[in-house]
């Protein structure tokens, strides 16, 4: 069963002086095992939207159903939170325990799992993010390097073995290799467990390459919801919104401006290269 967002609106009240609509009448179904990317400006409502997926925020109107469970139902909240894992921006800033393994165990323990199961999940999650159990489990999380901290924090969510994984800019602040590792890990996770990925990102090349669908938000509303090819075909509108485009897409747009008849559905390097090779080397 999917996550169904049904006519969701969320309004913040500004101390009685007025109200601010952060998400307006948004409907969306997030399917199991798929990769959904969410794009938009700071303040477009994407953070508000994702915090509805596990009931951290509740709708002002409309509904959010996670596998049929309503997020407003208090009794279902802990089930929902174990189904939907959420990785905040800079998750390493939430680390708190004495050792890495204790920190990773925090989530599974809150799920009231048996000790054996908790331990099993901790070691599985560490393997998944590429932190060796022997060398890291008993270390203090505060002794790790920046990239290792990020992976330890990710493991803390993965150990809950969620069915849907929400990530807010998981690659922010990492070097190219760190970014590659995280993306690769997410792909492996999706293939091995069928976990759905919902990722807020500004990294357009990665989004174009990995996402099944992209949701573009503007002022709390859905602007586009489609495959990367179809969304990036709106190159001009996206640029007007000051969103950046994948490099291949930018080159295609520039060529189009120069009067070359480039197809609209080019959004990755491979797309562009295949098209150019077809034209230049028949």
């Amino acid at each position: 069963m999917p996550i169904v967002i049904d006519h969701l609106s969320h309004t913040y009240f500004d101390g009685g002086m007025g109200s601010l609509s952060a998400v307006e009448d948004l409907s969306l179904t997030i399917h199991e095992g798929k990769f959904l990317a969410i794009m938009g400006h700071t303040g477009c409502g994407k953070t508000t939207l994702v915090q509805h997926l596990n009931g951290l925020l509740l709708p002002s109107s409309g509904r959010v159903l996670v596998d049929g469970l309503d997020t407003t139902d208090k009794k279902q909240r802990s089930t929902i939170r174990s189904l939907v894992g959420m990785v905040f921006q800079y998750p390493e800033y939430q680390l708190f325990a004495d050792t890495v393994k204790e920190d990773i165990a925090f989530g599974p323990r809150n799920m009231k799992l048996s000790i054996e199961e908790v331990n099993l999940r901790v070691s599985r999650a560490m393997a998944m993010v590429g932190l060796s159990y022997d060398s890291f489990a008993d270390k203090s999380p505060f002794e790790l390097s920046g990239g290792e901290k990020r992976r330890a924090a990710l493991a803390g969510i993965l150990a809950m073995e969620p069915k849907y994984l929400v990530l807010d800019e998981p690659m922010a602040g990492l070097d190219p290799q760190g970014r590659r590792q995280i993306l690769q890990m997410l792909e492996e996770l999706r293939q091995s467990t069928g976990c759905a990925i919902i990722m807020v990102s500004h990294s357009m090349e990665d989004v174009a390459r990995h996402a099944d669908r992209i949701l573009v938000m503007k002022a709390g509303k859905q602007m586009y919801l489609d495959t990367p090819q179809s969304v990036f075909a709106h190159a001009e509108e996206l640029s007007k919104m000051n969103l950046s485009l994948p490099a291949a897409c930018r080159v295609a747009a520039l060529l189009r401006q120069k009067g070359v008849d480039v197809p609209l559905d080019i959004c990755t390097r491979e797309d562009l290269e295949a098209y150019l090779m077809g034209r230049l080397k028949p």
């Binding site: 400006h41 700071t42 922010a172 602040g173 500004h202 357009m204 000051n242 969103l243 950046s244």
Partner: peptide, 8 residues
């Protein structure tokens, strides 16, 4: 620029 969005 590390902590900024694409517009920033």
């Amino acid at each position: 620029t590390a902590m900024l969005d694409s517009q920033g």
